[in-house]
Design a protein around this nucleic acid. Sequence first.
DNA 1: TCAATAGTTCCGCAATAATGAACAATTGAA
DNA 2: TTCAATTGTTCATTATTGCGGAACTATTGA
Lengths: 132, 132
Amino acid sequence: MGMRPLFHPKVEDITVEGILHALSDPVRVAIYAGIVGQDCSHNCSTFLTVSDKTIPKSTLSQHFRALREAGLIRGERRGVEMHNTSRCPEVEQRFPGLLGAIVNAHTIQSKDEARAKRSGAKRPVRRPAKNT
Amino acid sequence: MGMRPLFHPKVEDITVEGILHALSDPVRVAIYAGIVGQDCSHNCSTFLTVSDKTIPKSTLSQHFRALREAGLIRGERRGVEMHNTSRCPEVEQRFPGLLGAIVNAHTIQSKDEARAKRSGAKRPVRRPAKNT
DNA sequence: TCAATAGTTCCGCAATAATGAACAATTGAA
DNA sequence: TTCAATTGTTCATTATTGCGGAACTATTGA
């Protein structure tokens, strides 16, 4: 079986559920934040490890697919590697303020976690870890 | 086994992932929107059907639990039934603008869907349905 | 032509989610 | 008190989704 062509939803087909689901995963937000951060491109292998955890490339591939199919990023094959860009403007047009609020919330949380870690507190994580 | 006491995370333990995950489910956003809408209370059985689909009560119970444990709502036993209130203010304090943006985005999407339905278009749903 | 590089797909197993059935808790009536 | 009705929860089973190793595809450069 060959590789199927990359699917990208049209702006009007992007759903809130899709976006929330895509960004409810720590690895995916990390990836997404990375892509949004440097608004230029970004290829996959930049994200081989997220928060001290090595993500297998097959898993990474799936995560990128999830982000793509949620309409959050646009992927383009550039020779042997991928060129990923954020679709922020489009999403912003459809759901104003949504992405900003999410990214912002994540920033807040990261700072909190950093502070908690420094003070040695072991905050219980609500969303149960998926595997060990 | 008796019924365990209802668990509610402290504000500072509420996570973005938790919130996004909780609200990435159509049934749960519907429930949550209902509770936020009439800012007074709301009991479970008001939500027996969501978008032409009857949700079994055991499933509903789990959904309420998910919302509770994500820190989105507060549940209180009032005799035989439940009294659910939104924890909006608290969440707003921790993640300003987040809930507003999500609810707003959902409103936009609902209107789009209604318009699409009127014009008879069958828009593909990106986030695949979980069952059937 | 072939090795190296970068991602993707396939597939088995693990983790999550849905839900019917049995159960628990509270209320009100007899 | 005792019991039926009501409301929600828990358990057990099944279905769905997600992870990740191994094999594969596609492209580039030597």
